[in-house]
Write a protein that binds this DNA or RNA. Structure first.
Length: 217
DNA sequence: ACCCAGGGTCATA
DNA sequence: TATGACCATGGG
């Protein structure tokens, strides 16, 4: 009998939390900026940095490209690693403008775009996939620390497995549906914020429900 | 006071 | 290929 665990977990989370309408951003470029700023950082802190950038009218590629790196770092200070991330934002917009802007990227095949993104300094697999999925709507499943923790606890994956392996695993199980990947990753993040991090699962979150009962509906 | 967050790079073995 | 150090703020 075929393993339907990935779909079942999705159904439960979706039923429990409803539509998430991710990514929380106004433009594709804002998604890219947020994806870099949220690296190993709580979203709460990223919002402050993005607000600061917006107030300074620095949420467009050209203005970030022209901005002083030191000033950029000060603005994004609340997001942590601000010196590192200022350099990464610079690298991102430098590459973006080299490529001819967002429109050019949007017309690029997924595989090529993903390869290009990964060649940019400061953009690793997860950040690249955030951008591919949430800025361009490409069917790419995002694997983050929450996903590893949650699904290894469910016994569905090997927590230490290679990123690409896990991505293929999810994409194979779910089929190539960008709308599903979009909602699923959002649900994983939303639900992870309710889980006690120290114990395998707590009693009050949706994951506890997933853990407690057989997964076969 | 301690732990960690919606990672990635770089140096070393 | 596989660890470890490093980056740094803010909330629990």
């Amino acid at each position: 009998m075929r393993n339907c665990s990935f779909q079942c977990v999705y159904k439960r989370l979706d039923r429990h939390y409803g539509p998430q309408e991710w990514w929380p951003a106004e433009t594709p470029f804002e998604v890219m900026v947020g994806a870099v700023l949220t690296q190993n950082t709580a979203w709460n802190n990223v919002e402050k940095a993005i607000d600061a950038l917006r107030n300074a009218e620095l949420l467009q590629p050209e203005s970030i490209h022209a901005a002083d790196a030191g000033m950029l770092a000060e603005l994004i200070r609340p997001a942590g690693y601000f010196n590192v991330k200022a350099v990464r934002l610079k690298a991102l917009v430098g590459w973006l403008m080299e490529q001819g802007g967002i429109e050019m990227l949007a017309s690029m095949p997924i595989k090529d775009l993903r390869h290009e993104l990964l060649s940019v300094h400061g953009i690793g697999p997860e950040t690249a996939d955030d951008i591919l999925l949430y800025a361009f709507g490409h069917p790419v499943f995002v694997i983050d620390a929450y996903t590893r923790r949650m699904f290894s606890r469910l016994g569905l994956i090997d927590e230490k497995a290679d990123y690409e392996l896990l991505r293929r695993q999810f994409e194979t199980e779910l089929g190539k549906e960008a709308a599903v990947y979009n909602q699923y990753h959002a649900l994983i993040v939303v639900q992870a914020k309710e889980v006690c991090r120290k114990k395998p699962h707590c009693d009050k979150c949706c994951l506890a429900d997933v853990c407690r009962y057989p997964i076969n509906d």
